[in-house]
Design a protein around this nucleic acid. Structure first.
Lengths: 223, 223
DNA sequence: GTCTATAGCTAGATAGAC
DNA sequence: GTCTATCTAGCTATAGAC
């Protein structure tokens, strides 16, 4: 769980890598262990030496993904600066984290949908709750930033919860949009240029909204 | 396809209703036709009298969902009023349409992910392209509204594409967030109160952003 | 238009040799 | 720790009686 190893990937890690890619592409039910084993260069039965069940593999993948995101975002949430500065940096780091591993956004979104697929054993329920807690911790810290900012008057009075939902949608959905996003931008949403622009656009929207500055202002003219 | 019938549901409609609920909950690969047949009150083989394959059922469900959304949103996109007014009304109608059928948001999001699951026959590819066109038509009209508004100076200079992605995320993701959304708001995201508030919050964010109005700033200072 | 029966396959998981 | 062999159960889809 805690090793930041640089050693050659263990079978366990190899399995998780392969499973992560497949689960992101086709979801829990859409992936067969035969395929996982093949791409990992193992026999199907060998998977069961490292994990007790398919569900355990899936949950291990999810836990790893969440930890990756948390590693990036948590230090920023705990850092200093004004509320708006911190929010900007959180958005940047979240976007970086979603852009770096193209599987992340899809897995996170899918995890919201796919609870029903998992078997109802105690092991699985415990692991799933662990993941829920991990996700809730991240979201709680983001909520607190929003609430604090609103209370301090740095942010407009707004529902912190709704704002959080909007920010999740603006980041996670965007990087999960795959072919649709690619069709829209004419290049993958993970391309450096699109990622850079995404950060800019989200921050602009968060800062100023979409409506043009109220006219009387002489400074805010059109390009 | 075109009948707005009030007659008792045909077997075909019954199948689509049941399949829509199941596909939304567990995705294409996660649903078996046995379960669809059972809940529709039919034998499994009877499904194949109405549809040629599982994929055809799935695509018929998707097409129906898209048509439902389009029915609501298209007239508004074609209506008059300022760009900002039209955008507000489009968001309202999109949210109404997502709130009315709790399956819609999940099916739409899933449809972005689940291309890979479908078999590669010509029939399926044609039906899938038809759905892509239908979705692209809606998005194109929204893109045009954004572009026109930007060009006319009604909206702040921004990337129409990125803004569209943000709006999709803010609406579709929100109503697909299920248990997470419910945990966040303390009630289902489909509850009347949450829906009403969602419209308000999104429109506020779109109008003004999140940052507090620059205090006593002598008009026009760049945020 | 619905049914029973079944074909042909793949799934997740286990047993036990090496 | 990996393998082959196998189990049971599920799947999509078809054939053909009623």
């Amino acid at each position: 769980m805690t090793e930041a190893s640089a050693s050659p990937p263990s079978s366990r890690e190899k399995i998780l890598d392969v499973a992560e890619a497949l689960f992101a592409r086709r979801g829990y039910a859409g992936v067969g262990l035969r395929e996982v084993a093949e791409e990992a260069g193992l026999g199907k039965s060998s998977l069961f030496h490292h994990f007790r069940s398919k569900a355990e593999i899936y949950l291990a993948v999810l836990a790893r993904v969440l930890e990756r995101v948390n590693e990036r975002v948590a230090p920023i949430l705990a850092s200093g600066g004004s509320h708006l500065e911190r929010l900007d940096r959180v958005l940047d780091s979240l976007i970086d984290s979603l852009a770096e591993h193209p599987t992340t956004a899809r897995l996170l979104l899918r995890s919201l949908f796919e609870d029903d697929d998992l078997p109802d054993t105690d092991d699985v329920k415990r692991a799933a709750e662990e993941i829920d807690r991990s996700l809730a911790a991240i979201l709680d810290r983001m909520l607190r930033l929003l609430r604090d900012g609103i209370e301090a008057g740095s942010f407009r009075p707004a529902s912190a919860r709704h704002t959080l939902q909007t920010l999740i949608g603006a980041t996670v959905y965007h990087f999960a949009s795959g072919e649709l996003g690619e069709a829209l931008f004419g290049r993958p949403v993970f391309s450096a240029e699109t990622v850079r622009r995404r950060k800019e656009e989200i921050k602009n929207l968060v800062h100023s909204g979409l409506a043009a500055a109220p006219v009387a202002a002489p400074a805010g003219g059109r390009p």
